[in-house]
Design a protein around this nucleic acid. Sequence first.
DNA 1: CGGATTTGACCGGG
DNA 2: CCCGGTCAAATCCG
Length: 344
Amino acid sequence: MENASNWEKSTIANELIQGMEVARQLKFHLSSSTSSPETQQRLLQRILSSYDNALLLLNWNESSAVQPQAVPATVSVPHSPVSADGSPGGSKDHYQDVSKKRKALPTWRDQVRIYSENGVESSADDGYSWRKYGQKDILGATYPRSYYRCTYRNTQSCYATKQVQRSDNDPAVFEINYKGKHTCLQATNSVPPATPENQELKHDNHHYHLHQQPPSDVLLNFKSNLRVETEDFEKKEASSSFSFPYGIKNLTNDGQPSSFSQLVNENLMGNFSPSFISPATSGSSYFSVSPYQMNSFGQFPDTDHNEIISANTSTTNSPILDLDFHIDHVDLDPNFPFDTPGFF
DNA sequence: CGGATTTGACCGGG
DNA sequence: CCCGGTCAAATCCG
């Protein structure tokens, strides 16, 4: 409840901060002769996206769209939308709320939209390693639903699972349902999880669970190549005619379903938002983490990422805005308890 | 060769 | 009995 507002607040703040960050990068780019217009364009888009998201959130808030289920889990936040290739379309029905039936595993859902820019598509991933264990055609849905569970289910007894399903009308949108929290340790302890997982990408981050610091490249991909936008939606009654926002019947030619879905499937809390680096820019490790929402893993309270890793190492050349993520980080904290149902 | 994905069978609730 | 979720054997991929 109240936490929710807090949560949203921080979410919005994160968006804004992110936008600011990117703006800062852009500024740097602009003064750099090596920066390509393409990159600049991209950054600009990102900035716009942040605004967009922030506004969206506000709106969302106002409309009082409530989360579908009563689960306190968290929701993810929109990421950075950018251009869209989505389009209009009809609407179908998918509503779904997770009725709590089985154990009281925390569940929450997200909607992810992926955009491919510059012809580059990449997968979005939420930082966790998932193993697909099934796929089913769902009644009334055009696309099949895929079932994933944590890769470390057996080795670490991590029972987190998620279901991914592409939106009927807008192939660029994926609906993701998360169930259970991750208890495996595959990511950092201080920051939101970000771990490897891109089955589709050609990386091979095989095993590195138990380690900290996820590969930043993943993160980079994540952010730089495609934009993901996650948003929760409001729940509609089961009325047959409601419509979700979107729709299009566009075709996503490109990827084949499989890769597409994989690609897209996960990504949700982009806890990490490394301001990615573009070639010309600060090549170094400038990476700022913005604690988005740490939903999915809220394993225990102790997970408080004590600090964010803001190593602006070399990038300091510009005295521009140096936001303090810590602030919002702090802000986020409150949420934590919230989504920690002690299950585990 | 090992691990992930695929895909149809199987299970169980409604 | 229908439908969504899971299992598991076969298959694929690196």
